Amino acid sequence: MKALRLIVGVAGLGFLLGMGGYAFYQGKGWSYLSDRPEACVNCHVMREEYESWQHSSHRNWASCNDCHMPHTFLGKWATKAVSGLRHSVAFTTGRFPEPIVATPGNRAIALENCVACHRPVVEAMLLRPGVYGPEDLNCTACHGNVGHRGLK
């Protein structure tokens, strides 16, 4: 009986690892460990964002991770892990909005990165979430088409 439980447990673990490995392979999981913008179009819902970014003024200066990931080592990889898991579940179950919408946390990261890159121009402005209230002025309120198509 003990041997049977061990065999079933090892087989179950092997099955889960095999399915996870296959999903990682099919989803081009290794590409997400890079900073290459092409990784973002592994998922079909990001193709419009990628195409519009290629025609934007930011294409020459910033890639997806420059705007959408924290600029600290731990922050970047923690955000990639949480976002990756959330995206995997959403795309596997088909439960995501089209066009895709950034979460409030991801919008806050993008705002911090806007301010960080454009600090000489915006340092006198208080463009930080929560300073005046939930509907604070933010970069994309006026410049929603800068990185790619109208994002708010």
Rank of each mutant, 00 (worst) to 15 (best):
T79Q: 07
A11F: 06
M19C: 09
H58F: 15
S31Y: 13
C43R: 05
T92Y: 12
A116R: 14
N65E: 06
A62T: 11
R36M: 02
E38P: 05
A90T: 03
G9M: 13
R107M: 01
V89T: 01
P134F: 12
T93K: 03
V101I: 14
S56Q: 11
V115F: 13
G147H: 10
G105I: 00
E98C: 09
P97F: 08
A11S: 15
P70D: 13
V8R: 08
M46A: 07
L85V: 05
M19S: 06
V122S: 03
Y22R: 13
C117V: 11
N113T: 06
W30S: 12
P70E: 13
W30T: 11
L4G: 02
H71P: 06
L16F: 01
G144K: 12
C114L: 03
V101Y: 06
R36E: 14
K76H: 05
A90G: 01
V8D: 09
A62E: 08
E49L: 08
N106C: 06
H148M: 03
S57K: 05
R149A: 00
F96E: 11
Y22F: 14
F73T: 08
T103L: 11
G14F: 07
G9L: 07
L6P: 03
L151N: 01
G105Y: 06
P104S: 05
N145Y: 14
M46F: 14
T103Q: 04
I109S: 04
L17T: 05
G144D: 04
R59Q: 03
R107Y: 05
L111Y: 01
R107L: 07
C64E: 05
C40T: 00
E38L: 10
N42C: 04
H44R: 13
Y22S: 11
E48A: 05
G133I: 01
C40I: 09
A23M: 14
G29C: 04
I100Y: 14
V101G: 01
L33M: 15
V82A: 00
T72Y: 07
R95V: 09
R36A: 14
L137G: 08
